[in-house]
Design a binder for these strands. Structure first.
Lengths: 341, 341
DNA sequence: GTTAGCACTCGACCTTTGAGAGTGCTAACA
DNA sequence: TGTTAGCACTCTCAAAGGTCGAGTGCTAAC
């Protein structure tokens, strides 16, 4: 048995209906739809075929059909059409973003808020990945007698900062001098190159061994892996609107995942494509077995990029979600690259 | 009718039992308890009195009694005894905090995590309130041609930073010079004094009017009110463990409050006391009508302090919560004041 | 290939019923 | 006079049974 145009059409109608209602779809419902010129009996035959092909499932004998993960896969890959956002939607997004700021944490917080607000799903946004980045400037600002704020500026104009310990007796002017040396030596370096350069610097300077070790530690931790990129979640409570989460225990374990960076981070990874859709079982996490995750990449400058994701029920409105993220990707890039409106 | 020792004792027993089980407490249950030498019938008479006095309520005729908000109030004010934390509990807290860092965001995040983890309730921790603070140092670090990171260090050794716009043509050295002037002029100032000083500085410098306006803007927003102090929540999913939140809609509106800074911030305010307990209706928020909030203050240096809060069901284990927060208050102070272990 | 008709299935919802927990009241007891 | 045993009463909860309606698969006719 093969798929034909009519089967595609019926499947699409079922998915569309189920996305809206979350109720198993019966043959009569489809037959009544505009543009479907067949009786319920005919639809039933086709539905029976679609079930055999693995696209539909029946919760129990006398219920309607619900789309399987395979059906959503087909829908996302072949049936889905991009939609245009309404002026009201883009307006809502811009309202969240209209603060003029290039502060990474703030931008991604606003982005997560906007995404969850517009889609009514849960949004996760990570800060820009610093792995392939180049260093532009390193500067220490004195804080107390024994500590300073180490500020690292990247080529793309992103900033990371961190308090480090400073040996007693190293004064503000000395810190400024050291900062100049560090900036000269490290400018243009990748984090890996910086590590080598720093050992040279340490050798040259002789003293300040411990301080340089702290600097290296920060570069490693802040520009190294992605354990330290900020990660914010928005709209945690949104999913509890959906009947999929009318069971508190399910809701709780879902929320628990959102609270665990270790479990959450992998959801945003796994693909460098512009968009990635993972559906239910494809995610491979029991807590998310009837969730889908749509992730997208945003770019800042040449080499820097971050990820955002939307988590919703498998029956989520993929077309709209992809459109919203598409729009948001450009918006974040503009904000973080300092583009003026 | 008046309260007597026996009534207190019975009320305490009922509260203790209800805190553990969340099930209405019957006369037999109390009568069976160690140290209570009375039959269920006697207890029943006393319970009937306690109900008349407003300390107990009956969900329905043939159920046991549950404590009223008034009973918890009495419990917190008069009956509660501080408990000692077990080594296991202090250990768990230290495990969350053992990263050596004086980074405010990180410390309060860890604190919220630790509090929620140890108490199994939901925790909210705010960063130190900057209102009464004095400025110690102001420094700008160049980021791009047209932006810089403005770093403000306070007397207590706390740091706030923010990206500001810089007019084209102002180079790194000039920014450093300006930073020196700013630090000289503003050192020791309160935010209010800084505002006046800055207008002087602007007058003296002539140019850089716009830059100074940006600096002032940051001082106002970062050290001014408390709209900009960081606020982190830990253990959002914890409350869903309790039968009070077995209703999804209730859980959802609870979570929605946690997502709204405007609704959440007032919960941490309202009292300068070391500890404040607000019970159910005292909170005056429908979403929290059967929650209690315990808040406590922590101090950094002389003039700087922040707030933490625990949100749990009204039948929460107040004694333990207060003890945990007491311990945590000292731990946060130590971390943020840079005290070494 | 399409459709009408029909018997069949199964969950949703309602009602009934019985068990259990807990109460208030009364009368007896120390 | 305070305490307690006994008992009738109330109310929730869970299980059991019954009805309704939506939806199916199959067959036969168009």
């Amino acid at each position: 048995m093969k798929m034909d145009d009519r089967k595609f059409m019926i499947l699409q109608a079922i998915i569309d209906d189920y996305i809206m209602t979350a109720v198993p779809v019966g043959s009569r419902t489809i037959s009544r739809k505009q543009g479907v010129g067949f009786s319920p009996a005919t639809i039933r035959n086709e539905m029976s075929d679609l079930e055999e092909l693995g696209y539909l499932a029946q919760p129990h004998t006398s219920a309607g059909r619900i789309p399987s993960a395979k059906a959503y896969r087909l829908y996302v890959d072949r049936l889905m059409k991009m939609v245009d956002l309404s002026a009201e939607e883009t307006g809502r997004i811009q309202d969240h973003l209209n603060k003029r700021t290039a502060q990474v944490e703030e931008v991604i917080r606003q982005a997560a808020q906007a995404l969850s607000d517009v889609t009514h799903y849960t949004a996760v946004v990570s800060g820009p990945q610093m792995a392939g980045v180049s260093i532009k400037r390193v500067q220490m600002v004195p804080v107390t007698e024994t500590s300073a704020l180490l500020v690292i500026v990247t080529g793309a104009g992103l900033v990371r900062e961190r308090v480090i310990q400073v040996p007693e007796g190293v004064g503000p002017d000395q810190l400024y001098g050291l900062s100049k040396v560090l900036t000269e030596r490290l400018a243009g370096c990748s984090p890996q190159e910086a590590r080598e350069q720093l050992t040279n610097v340490t050798a040259d300077l002789g003293e300040h061994r411990q301080l340089m070790a702290s600097v290296l530690g920060v570069i490693d931790s802040q520009l190294g892996g992605d354990e330290n990129v900020p990660l914010v979640v928005g709209g945690r409570s949104n999913l509890l609107h959906y009947p999929e989460y009318s069971d508190v225990e399910k809701a709780r374990s879902f929320l628990a995942v959102l609270e665990s960076r270790e479990k959450l981070a992998p959801l945003l990874k796994g693909s460098d494509l512009e968009f990635t859709v993972r559906i239910g079982p494809e995610i491979n996490m029991p807590e998310f077995s009837d969730c889908s995750v749509v992730t997208a990449t945003y770019h800042v400058g040449e080499n820097t990029s971050g990820t955002m994701g939307i988590i919703g029920p498998t029956r989520m409105d993929y077309a709209r979600v992809v459109s919203v993220m598409n729009y948001m990707g450009r918006a974040i890039s503009d904000l973080l690259s300092g583009v003026k409106e």
